[in-house]
Write a protein that binds this DNA or RNA. Structure first.
Length: 899
RNA sequence: GGACGCUUAGCUCAGAGGUAGAGCGCUACCUUCACACGGUAGAAGUCAUAGGUUCGAAUCCUAUAGCGUCCACCA
């Protein structure tokens, strides 16, 4: 028997899903859910919870539907993020990074990884994510190392990877190059300084506007627009770079925008992407003045050397001002690039880096989606994917940090590079190349962008580059669930790399979910303090409630505004279900394997089976089309609005009439007829009651079981718990294909019963008659036997509507329900005015609708063009409205008589 | 500057050619033996605006506005 209080904590920890997650079904159709590996650095935030919950729902659903599901977890080494984190921790404990060697730092990071890698895994278990933890992988485990080296070498040898000295985005805080994607543009308050550049051998000046005066030492030209008559006479002349004695030319280039600044722009090819291009066009020198740490280097006057770029900026301005070279300064808003990890302003720098020719790789990646081999859900995310891929630039994959996959390239003494999977192979090639045996090779110091290995995740996890059975079986049979924010970072790269490495798509479906925001729609951040911790929520409301809530709020293409109240709603629903099961237990509704839903006689039973079947079919359809919200809603409505609100209320009065000893009754539950046979003292009447009761009980148990089963993917803990209570061990998806209960006369009769009850209640409320007061009722029905109806459902009507069937009524009021007229006897002193008002109102509205429909039916064009069904529907509706108006009129008249 | 998304009840959101829906909140009543994390009955909406297509538009199309996001650029 279930405990009275629903307390998720009391049972959630008793369930573990590891065994079922690791179960393989070699004969079933394979299906893979590719879990985006979380960073080792972290703990799960609510966004992960959403992502993993949706995946888990898919995985569990597919398992129930008989698929062989591989749901494999892993962790991402998250190069820069992890290294920064560990460095910070070391720093906090008094260890400077500079004092550590590469090996020492790596040792520290591995140590930290070993100690904290479990955090995420444990959190996933709390959430009930059923991935196969026995197959957990890490993006830097031995297999991954081998695969990454293989991939790099293959791309290099196929001409997709090259090393080049090029301008890249450089993060001076971390001291590494980063890719374009890791750049975030941010608007900041800036200042535009107008600086006088004096012409060589002349007093004449040209004013140049700049936001970065500290790069003045790297200036190699001043550019003006060829059409700019203000400066035409200066072209070809030379100016002196302020604070130095270096002379640079004034050149003409269309890049100079006459409308911006002074129209004359300084050209600093070493520290600006546009200037670099101008420099190339005019074959200008490149003078680097800022180093890897953002400090000014030896190419600047001595007083500026080793100075931080921002300090130098102030100093330069100060000196310029002092020398009367500063014309003015203007406060402006400017958007400048920052590093997404470090948060510092980036510095374009020219360095040697490794690049992936993403443009070439993108071509098959684009067609895979264009040809429909890979689907985005919702589809509109394809646009974003195409847009980015169509203008993709070379992907800088080398990073000047230590934590990551080392670039598999070795250099000979003369700088000759050998790109091979191992030192031994590189040495082999070197020996061949140099024609001698003792060669000193040094490995490239850089590591690869984390996303390089992440991009290989779909096949690394299956054992690539080995030709494994898993690879053959699961690769490409995959659905991936993720947020749109990593379509570029991850999705696009997995497709590009997957196609190139294996010749096959890495996954079929990409489900893009929304982002989880706070209740105001703002991004959650520790800084703002609006973070919802999923583990906290699980503790407070239970993991199932969190899962259910996330799923039910996950409508396509929309972000989720999350707060505690939303989760409360989910928790309330589970409480309701819990109590429904308790109810069934208290009333002896036990699951009976021999129960045949097609064989039930009671219209009540048919009614709930009909609705349960529909709901479950709807859930299936919703899940097949990734409509987690709809699926959750269908379960909710069936449990609460059908089962609890109606069916259970219906059967209460029936189950509670005790015509026979409840103990005998219980023993008879399994097979009523046998039990009755043994007890031949029972009257026929009691036998019928007993059979009917058993029908209703079995149906309740059966419906609950089916609903608990479909809830399983969403809320596995409570589902397991309740199944245990019901006495069912195996989780399976309900097979309702054989259930053939249609919307027949019996089911319609119950719909009528519902409406009768609602109408009587409504009327009572309107007349301020207390619910407890029992009123006599009689009834007329057009197409059925009213006497039988009242006899069949008398107990229910008594209990749910507070009416007692009586043949003759003295003073009565009538209400109209679905073609039936119900007369209800009234006591003294009831104020009928309210009811009359209500009826008149209803009549008014009905008349309006009636006229509208009539207008349409009078329209020849409507009759000509509308589909036959629609016309029939309109006619039927018109009829029923007419009927109702007529009856309301009759009721209003009768009210007047009563008065 | 380019692209995408959103605008439906007080709030959060479903609905996608033919009766306007849910949850929360609100109002009134009910502590009835599954459940107050509950029950019953209610109130509440020119479906952002303007045009168009259609017999018929919240739903399709086109503009406009507001909000949001992404990409690009900015001496």
């Amino acid at each position: 028997m279930l405990e009275k209080n629903f307390d998720p904590k009391s049972f959630e920890q008793n369930f573990s899903f590891e065994i079922e997650a690791s179960l393989r079904k070699p004969k079933a159709e394979p299906f893979m859910v590719l879990l985006p590996p979380p960073n080792v650095t972290g703990s799960l935030h609510i966004g992960h919870s959403l992502c993993y919950t949706l995946q888990d729902i898919l995985a569990r659903y597919k398992r129930l539907r008989g698929y062989d599901v591989l749901f494999q977890p892993g962790l991402d080494h998250a190069g820069i993020a992890t290294q920064l984190l560990v460095e910070k921790r070391l720093y906090d404990s008094g260890v400077e990074k500079k004092s550590l060697s590469r090996e020492q730092l790596l040792k520290e990071i591995w140590l930290w990884k070993e100690n904290s890698g479990d955090v995420v895994v444990n959190q996933m278990k709390i959430l009930g994510i059923s991935c196969d933890f026995s197959r957990q992988r890490f993006t830097m485990d031995e297999g991954a190392k081998k695969a990454v080296a293989k991939m790099f070498v293959r791309l290099f040898k196929d001409g997709f990877i090259y090393r080049q000295k090029k301008m890249v985005n450089w993060d001076p805080f971390i001291g590494t190059a980063i890719s374009d994607l890791e750049v975030v543009e941010r608007e900041v308050d800036g200042r535009l300084w107008y600086v006088k550049y004096v012409l060589a051998n002349s007093d004449e000046c040209i004013t140049v506007a700049t936001t970065r005066p500290e790069t003045i030492f790297g200036d190699v030209a001043v550019a003006v627009n060829p059409d700019d008559c203000r400066y035409a006479h200066l072209i070809g002349k030379k100016v002196v770079v302020p604070l130095t004695d270096r002379k640079i030319p004034i050149i003409e280039d269309k890049y100079a925008d006459m409308a911006k600044g002074s129209g004359a722009v300084k050209i600093t090819p070493a520290h600006d992407f546009n200037d670099f291009l101008v420099g190339e066009r005019h074959k200008l020198d490149v003078i680097e003045v800022i180093d890897a740490r953002g400090e000014l280097n030896e190419n600047v006057p001595e007083i500026f050397q080793k100075m931080d770029r921002f300090a130098a900026r102030e100093k330069v301005v100060e000196l310029l001002d002092k020398m009367k070279l500063l014309v003015r300064a203007e406060d402006i808003k400017q958007t400048i690039p920052f590093g997404d990890r470090s948060g510092v302003a980036l510095e374009p720098r020219i360095t040697y880096q490794w690049f992936v020719d993403a443009e070439k790789l993108s071509i098959p990646a684009i067609s895979a989606v264009k040809d429909g081999k890979i689907r985005f859900i919702p589809k509109h995310w394809e646009n974003l994917y195409f847009e980015w891929l169509s203008k993709i630039r070379p992907w800088c994959v080398s990073r000047q940090i230590w934590w990551g996959h080392r670039v598999p390239a070795w250099y000979g003494p003369d700088g000759q590079v050998f790109v091979e999977e191992s030192y031994e192979e590189a040495m082999g090639k070197a020996v061949e190349f140099y024609g001698k045996n003792t060669i000193e090779l040094t490995q490239d110091a850089d590591v690869l962008d984390t996303w390089f290995s992440s991009g290989m995740w779909p096949f690394i996890t299956l054992g690539w580059p080995d030709k494994t059975d898993d690879m053959k079986r699961y690769y490409s049979k995959t659905t991936i669930v993720t947020g749109f924010d990593i379509i570029f970072f991850w999705i696009a790269r997995m497709i590009m790399m997957g196609l190139h490495a294996t010749g096959n798509i890495p996954f079929r479906d990409i489900y893009i979910h929304g982002l989880v925001r706070d209740e105001k729609g703002q991004k959650m951040s520790k800084y703002k303090g609006n973070v919802l911790d999923p583990v906290d929520l699980c503790n407070k409301y239970g993991a199932d409630a969190v899962r259910y809530t996330l799923a039910s709020m996950s409508s396509p293409g929309r972000n989720i505004k999350m707060n505690d109240r939303a989760v409360e709603n989910g928790r309330n629903f589970l409480t309701k279900l819990w109590n429904a099961v308790r109810f069934s237990q208290l009333h002896g509704c036990t699951s009976n394997k021999r129960f045949d839903p097609n064989a039930v006689n009671s219209p009540l039973a048919k009614w709930i089976i009909y609705h349960a079947k529909n709901a479950i079919t709807d859930v299936e359809q919703a899940l097949e089309s990734y409509r987690f919200d709809e699926a959750a809603r269908h379960i909710y409505r069936c449990v609460w609005n059908c089962l609890c609100d109606w069916y259970m209320e219906f059967i209460k009065p029936i189950l509670q009439t005790s015509h026979i000893n409840p103990n005998e009754e219980n023993s008879a539950t399994d097979d009523a007829a046998d039990a009755v046979g043994e007890n031949n003292k029972l009257r026929d009447y009691d036998i019928n009651i007993l059979l009917a009761k058993n029908d209703l009980r079995n149906t309740a148990a059966w419906v609950i079981l089916q609903l608990v089963r479909v809830l399983y993917p969403f809320c596995p803990f409570i589902s397991k718990k309740l199944m245990g209570e019901i006495g069912v061990v195996d989780t399976e998806w309900p097979d309702l294909s054989g259930v053939n209960i249609s919307f027949d006369q019996d089911v319609k009769e119950i719909e009528l019963l519902k409406n009768v009850i609602t109408s009587i209640r409504s009327m009572k409320q309107c007349l301020r008659i207390s619910v407890g007061e029992k009123l006599p009722v009689s009834m007329e029905m057009t197409n059925a036997d009213a006497g039988k109806f009242l006899a069949d459902y008398g107990d229910i009507l008594y209990r749910m509507a507070g009416v007692v069937a009586e043949e003759r009524l003295m003073q009565s009021i009538s209400i109209v329900v679905d073609g039936a007229v119900i007369r209800i006897g009234l006591g003294e002193g009831v104020d009928l005015l309210q009811e009359k008002k209500r009826l008149c109102n209803e009549k008014l509205k009905l008349t309006e609708t009636h006229d509208e429909i009539l207008l349409r039916l009078d329209n020849s064009e409507f009759l000509e063009k509308a589909s036959e069904n629609v016309i029939i529907e309109h006619k039927e509706r018109l009829e029923s409205i007419r009927d109702r108006i007529q009856k309301i009129d009759y009721v209003i008249q009768s009210l007047e008589i009563v008065e």
